[in-house]
Nucleic acid binder design. Structure first.
Lengths: 216, 216
DNA sequence: CTGGGAGTGGGACAAATGTCCCGTTTAATT
DNA sequence: AATTAAACGGGACATTTGTCCCACTCCCAG
């Protein structure tokens, strides 16, 4: 859910240090809540997150948002636009203070050509995103919200991160009301510890809980 | 919805002709209904569709399927597995008789390195898939089924393709019953021409729909 | 402090979607 | 032509989810 990529970050850090290769790479900072990228706009750099957490989401014109992913350290964004030269697909906003490396599109594409290793890292990122997105989409479409919610909570717990309910609901593609309701149902079924939302599930445990729901 | 990619196909055709570069590339055929790839299995080639239409879907263990995309001429599949070396994400089955080029993983990766042009074509494919998937997912999560259905029908009409209701429902992530119901509602609202599936929207809905159809 | 805004929690009702089921149509096979 | 399996269409009912609304807390700028 919160994606990070140390290998990628390391590579970019190195480039940045390098007088030669790094000359067009810059650092930029954003306050929490600031927009890094605005959906529909045209940008001319890619961003690699050095520090902080962002959310990546589409705002539909019925006023609802859908969050695709939370991007953390080492994640790249704006790369689709560099590759396909289109308008920005989504919004990126900072959830915490954020620092990024920026690389101009043409430089970025050139780097891909000159550093096969970098190119391969990017291929892996893209492949991983497709992979994850597919799994998540399928899951969210074909299972009741309850399952997706448990899964999300479990991820959140394992990553020690916490998001607002609004964001969590937007990540699940549901209303905050549904989110709350489902949470309450789970609580009443004693599935969640009432103290906090600390659930600490392994995949097997999750399976078990899901099975338990079935009879009740 | 039905993706195709002539540039990619051409490139692979050329490789195939080339004695040197094409020596590991093979042709393979499948009857309609056959599995090209089975979810969870391990494969060692990528497939590029030369002819025919396939569906790419995940089967969840509650018995439901989610179709990500219909892949046609020039589309590649199995590439995620080549890049990330994991088990197959999804099933690929032939909807029509299908002929594919197969390229062994290591050969495929080598080709990416030796042909920057090929590498770039692949980057574009991956980027386009992420792009499309994001748009579609968001749309399907945040709008009533009615909209997604209209969009799907319009795409289908514009591409002159026809899929079974089961497949269309699986593409939308809903049950066949819901699919039928929504279709009926639309018919009763005179939104659809009864003759064929000629979309004939009226009123503001038309404008809104058109706008959305454009990008996909 | 203090008023306002954002986040939270949930009741009541409406709308959307799923499940179960059965009769009909279509298409392919014998 | 007869038979069968699959696809289609939809009724009845249950469940899920959304919308609208209000009350409560918390926090911060004035």
């Amino acid at each position: 859910m919160l994606r990070t990529n140390t290998a990628f970050l390391q590579f970019v850090e190195q480039l940045f240090e390098d007088k030669q290769a790094g000359n067009a790479i810059q650092l930029k900072s954003f306050a929490a809540g600031a927009h890094l990228i605005r959906q529909g706009s045209i940008i001319s750099q890619v961003y690699i997150i050095r520090e902080g957490i962002t959310k990546c989401y589409i705002a539909e014109d019925n006023g609802k948002d859908y969050i695709f992913e939370f991007l953390g350290t080492g994640e790249i964004t704006g790369e689709l636009e560099a590759i396909n030269k289109g308008a920005c697909l989504s919004n990126i906003t900072a959830l915490t203070p954020v620092t990024v490396f920026t690389i101009p599109h043409n430089r970025f594409m050139a780097l891909l050509r000159s550093y096969p290793e970098f190119n391969e890292l990017l291929l892996k990122v893209l492949a991983a995103r497709i992979y994850q997105t597919c799994i998540r989409t399928s899951y969210q479409q074909l299972y009741p919200v309850e399952y997706a919610l448990l899964r999300l909570l479990s991820l959140e717990a394992s990553q020690q991160t916490f998001f607002s309910k609004k964001d969590m609901a937007a990540y699940l593609g549901i209303s905050v009301r549904s989110f709350n309701r489902t949470l309450k149902d789970l609580r009443e079924k004693n599935i969640l510890d009432k103290e906090g939302l600390n659930i600490d599930l392994s995949k097997e445990q999750l399976e078990q809980m899901i099975k338990r729901f079935e009879d009740a």
